[in-house]
């Protein structure tokens, strides 16, 4: 028996049959989860530690619910775009890719509106207090992820007009889609844990002196 067989027939695709780049994207998403984790944890740890300035009472839950809806719909548009290119329906792919990117831009618009309102109406900036630092950094990094996704999607769309994105390499779209959905699930967590749970009964917390030093008269 030979223990190392050297024959040209041995050429094969990959050991697992899985695509390198798709596996890379999943590994990256797992790693990116380890990036958002500490940011969320820092925010939660500091939830009741701000000693001055506004806290979760600045949230505009109805508006954020709408922007959450927008991002969820962009995920739907993304899977429809993928279904389009997998079936070779380029029109369907292009329409839904454009929709995904546009909805992503609308979401960014909501976020810019929110940040501006915080700054002008409540005087809340990253420098104001711990709430401002942690919340704006966390959602800012999420917004940066969305922005990267939007650029990626427009690039795919333009590349498709140059004939570089076709049914054969629908994997390019699938990988961009994985990234896009991941950004969506991070938002699902942020909306639930940071916005809804964070702002629940916040008026009472403010009245009772939720701020760390308020009780000391500080």
């Amino acid at each position: 028996m030979q223990y190392i067989v050297r024959s040209p027939e041995a050429e094969h695709a990959t050991s697992t049959g899985l695509n390198n780049r798709k596996l890379l994207m999943w590994a990256f998403l797992g790693s990116d989860a380890m990036f958002f984790g500490p940011l969320i944890a820092t925010h939660l740890i500091y939830r009741t530690e701000s000693i001055q300035g506004p806290i979760e009472n600045v949230f505009n839950i109805p508006v954020t619910t709408i922007s959450t809806f927008v991002l969820l719909m962009s995920s739907l548009a993304m899977v429809l775009a993928l279904a389009g290119i997998q079936q070779g329906k380029m029109g369907m792919f292009r329409f839904w890719t454009a929709m995904t990117a546009l909805l992503g831009m609308v979401f960014i618009g909501f976020q810019m509106f929110e940040f501006t309102e915080f700054a002008h109406k409540y005087g809340l900036t990253p420098r104001t207090n711990l709430f401002g630092s942690t919340f704006l950094t966390l959602t800012g990094f999420h917004g940066a992820h969305v922005t990267v996704g939007v650029i990626w999607l427009w690039s795919l769309l333009f590349a498709s007009f140059r004939g570089k994105v076709k049914q054969e390499n629908s994997l390019d779209v699938e990988i961009a889609g994985l990234y896009w959905h991941f950004v969506d699930i991070v938002w699902i967590v942020i909306f639930g844990v940071i916005y809804l749970v964070g702002a629940y009964g916040v008026e009472e917390r403010v009245l009772n002196g939720a701020h760390a030093l308020a009780g000391l008269g500080g």
Partner: peptide
């Protein structure tokens, strides 16, 4: 920002 600024309650 105030992440590690103890005077801001960090």
């Amino acid at each position: 920002t105030n992440f590690y600024d103890i005077t801001a309650g960090a």
